[in-house]
Computed example of a mutant assay.
Amino acid sequence: MSDRKPASPAAQGNADKAANDKPRISPGEFFRQVRVEANKVAWPSRQETVQTAIFVGILMTILALFFLGVDSLFGFVVRSLLSLA
């Protein structure tokens, strides 16, 4: 059990006030900052994007076939067990 007391309403009010003391920025400044940050991103090339998409497609197909096999095997086992009853 914690010995911490809940914050008083006055203390919570001071915390809210401190959070609201941040200087507000204009929408124009916000979008300028977004553009600056977006320019820092290392975007993949078209070739990297195509290669990754192909890899994901191949891996998805392999996993789908694997789970189809596992599901078919479990279905066979359950049907066999139910036919014994």
Rank of each mutant, 00 (worst) to 15 (best):
V56A: 09
A11C: 07
A19H: 13
P23I: 04
Q33V: 01
I54G: 07
V70P: 05
L84E: 09
P27M: 04
N39H: 13
P44G: 07
V56K: 10
F66P: 02
R79A: 12
S26P: 01
I25H: 02
V41I: 11
I62E: 05
A18W: 07
A19G: 15
A18D: 12
K40Y: 04
P9Q: 13
N14K: 10
S8T: 12
D71H: 06
F67T: 07
P6K: 14
P23Y: 08
R32D: 11
G57L: 13
P9L: 11
S45M: 00
R32C: 03
I62Q: 03
L59A: 13
A10H: 04
R32H: 08
K5M: 06
T61M: 09
S8W: 01
I62A: 09
L82W: 10
S45T: 14
D16N: 12
K40L: 05
I54K: 14
S8M: 05
R4C: 04
I54E: 15
N20E: 08
A10P: 00
V70M: 15
V50I: 14
V50Y: 06
K40G: 01
I25P: 00
I54S: 10
M1R: 14
Q33W: 04
L81M: 09
K40D: 07
F66N: 04
T49C: 11
V50S: 03
Q33G: 02
I25M: 08
T61W: 09
